[in-house]
Design a protein around this nucleic acid. Structure first.
Lengths: 185, 185
DNA sequence: ATTCCGATTGACTGATTAGTCAGTTTCTTG
DNA sequence: CAAGAAACTGACTAATCAGTCAATCGGAAT
């Protein structure tokens, strides 16, 4: 693993344990096994590091989830695939999950930033279609997207809190139905 | 307003703008119009201040919401009253809302702390009843509670983002139905 | 009037931290 | 190989911040 990646990974772990301000850059470098100076070679400021991490996670989430949606699936199938992939990704990458959670409630986060991302755009396209053909409730698409995202986060947090994994298909479906029912007409 | 309260109010505003670590105690005292030392007279450490603020908000939320639920209401009516009261409270007290959001994603927050609160206990009682008599889905009560809380938060954030208030009853109902449908069988 | 005690002040400190920089090593390319 | 560029080091600094403390104030009780 190159030093840049090693720094991002270490930062993600420390941030998720101690928060952005609770983690000194010197400590990130030390635990990553590199010098203090090299951190600022790759990331001129701490802010740049944090924002780079955000896009790093969102990109990988996009690649992981969207690759699983197949053409010709019904709307519910597509949403289910996205939902399940997102839950899995967050369970398998707990530091990514905690980092994003903190980032999105921090003053760093601006909605405009998020809007630009492919992941959000893809979801909004799906949702628009769902509203048009009457499968989704008559509610602003952005609210449906935010609601779905919140449900996924809640599901992941619940599973983690109870040290559960998605090995029971029947239970997994029941969890998804919660999210689906809130969107469906 | 006494100095203790003034400090809590000022801290809430600054925390919601700049986060816990982005706000110096000296700045809280200054903007509250009191001396630096008096902050540490009332709150021995910054942590104590933050936790005191958390219970302050939760207590007021409890008083505001629970007072509106009337005996003899159906389950759906009770949940609606709680939902609406919580949304209103958060819209009317934006600094409380932002503070709690940050607190609950910070390392300060432990689920056990929350569990002790009357507000949570009351909600869980209602939910238990709903599951028993088959009105709610067969899903762990804690997940239903967390899901409802997340939906309320999402609703408030959406309304704020679009500079909306709950003046349109028909639209308000449609928002509530989203939350309700995810819980109801 | 005097004593007492909590409220209040604000200058101060020790610790921590983001970011710098002068210099060294390693890689690349003609 | 030479030489320039890029990666890398770690000691250093200026600034910031949580928390301290010695001193003052003001009101209540005796």
């Amino acid at each position: 693993m190159d030093k840049r990646t090693k720094l991002i990974e270490t930062a993600k772990r420390l941030f998720s344990e101690n928060g952005f301000y609770g983690t000194a850059t010197a400590r990130i470098a030390k635990e990553a096994g590199v010098s203090n100076g090299i951190l600022f070679h790759y990331f001129p400021t701490k802010d740049v590091l944090i924002k780079a991490m955000y896009f790093d996670v969102k990109d990988r989430l996009f690649d992981y989830t969207v690759g699983q949606v197949y053409k010709g699936a019904t709307l519910k199938e597509s949403i289910y695939t996205l939902w399940l992939a997102a839950v899995e990704f967050n369970l398998e990458n707990p530091n990514d999950f905690e980092f994003i959670r903190q980032f999105e409630t921090s003053p760093y986060y601006l909605t405009e930033t998020e809007l630009e991302h492919r992941y959000v755009q893809l979801c909004l396209e799906l949702i628009d279609k769902g509203i048009e053909d009457g499968q989704f409730k008559q509610i602003p698409p952005m609210l449906i997207f935010k609601s779905l995202s919140a449900q996924i986060e809640t599901t992941v947090r619940f599973l983690k809190m109870n040290k559960m994994v998605l090995d029971n298909v029947e239970f997994t479906h029941r969890l998804f139905e919660m999210s689906w029912d809130s969107l469906a007409k």
